[in-house]
Design a protein around this nucleic acid. Structure first.
Lengths: 191, 191
DNA sequence: TATCTATGCAACAAAATGTTCTATAAGTGC
DNA sequence: GCACTTATAGAACATTTTGTTGCATAGATA
């Protein structure tokens, strides 16, 4: 669908997607329909059908809008342990306290059957990988990294565990756990 | 809902749930409806409504039926590296080659909003935790474990990474990766 | 055999979903 | 400002999906 640059069209689209996102994260992706978005926004149903002939497309667009997770600014001052704590602490907070944590499971399920959702998720995971990577690289430059454990595996472990905990095993993500997690990572990286 | 022990009722229920599971894993949980199961099985719609007045209940039952993942038999002969390779190799195969791997994302999404799905997932994750636990405990008995890294964290890392890889980051789960993963785990456990 | 009950089927009701048309108002080019 | 284009609102309508009910039938039970 080509998107006209008519300001009315753009305004309607933004209004609709904001509402769709709101419905998505306060209820579920299933609750996002032409009818519910119409009710939420006052936009007429026929207009919404003009913008999104298929409800699946509307839901996906709402998801892609949702897929702008909080920006995480890593610190690389050192020491490694402090930097990891900072960076993973921000990730933890994002998972615990922003809509992202609530939406992520549904995005993952959608990613399993939809290419766009998958690439959105992958893009986000890639960003997180780079964040952690920059932390480890800074540590290496400082000469802190003495282990020969592959950095890729360290990065994967650093990120996988909090995600698994939050999204799959349902265990709590808190600072007590985070401290231990970082401790084990440093044990791997620094010895 | 109390389940009558009338064989007709039981037969209908099993037939319906088998079909629901099939639809679930070949299409998606959304494709499971009274109508689609009726079409698939020949069971009349009214009968299906009698069994499951709510479609959500039907979907959940289909999921709980699906939630019998392949049984994984851990080996504990040692050495640790071989045991981990075996155990995690089975887990990997299950994620790659059985319906479980395909269904898991949708179960996770459902678990985020449904208590029963959540406890099904948690039950399965707990089984996996025990599997890995038994491997590490056997290694400890043999005196292999010399690290003071907390076993709980090792277990979490062992499992979280393959799940994250398969379900979230979308990276491939293969033996090349598995070898490295196990290598890093052993580095943590054995030094 | 007599009784109970799950099922199939058809008819129906209600709600959700999708389509089309027209009047109107907002934006665009001159 | 004026003519033209286009997006929207709203209503009317068709279609599909979803949910309900009554009754005849056949399988289960005792």
């Amino acid at each position: 669908m080509t998107i006209p640059d008519d300001p009315r069209f753009i305004a309607t689209r933004n209004l609709a997607l904001d509402a769709a996102f709101k419905i998505f994260h306060s209820e579920s992706v299933l609750a996002v329909t032409h009818a519910s978005v119409s009710k939420e926004t006052g936009i007429s149903r026929s207009t919404l059908y003009r913008h999104w002939p298929e409800v699946a497309q509307l839901r996906k667009d709402a998801m892609l809008r949702a897929a702008r997770p909080p920006v995480i600014a890593p610190r690389t001052n050192g020491p490694l342990k402090a930097d990891l704590n900072w960076m993973l602490g921000l990730l933890m907070a994002a998972l615990n306290e922003t809509p992202w944590g609530k939406i992520a499971p549904q995005m993952i399920a959608t990613a399993a059957i939809d290419v766009d959702a998958k690439s959105a998720i992958n893009g986000f995971m890639e960003d997180r990988r780079k964040d952690v990577m920059s932390v480890f690289e800074a540590a290496e430059k400082r000469g802190e990294l003495v282990s020969d454990a592959p950095i890729e595996n360290l990065i994967e472990m650093a990120i996988a565990v909090p995600y698994h905990r939050k999204l799959i095993s349902g265990l709590p993500l808190d600072y007590a756990w985070l401290d231990e997690h970082v401790e084990v990572l440093c044990r791997l990286a620094l010895r």
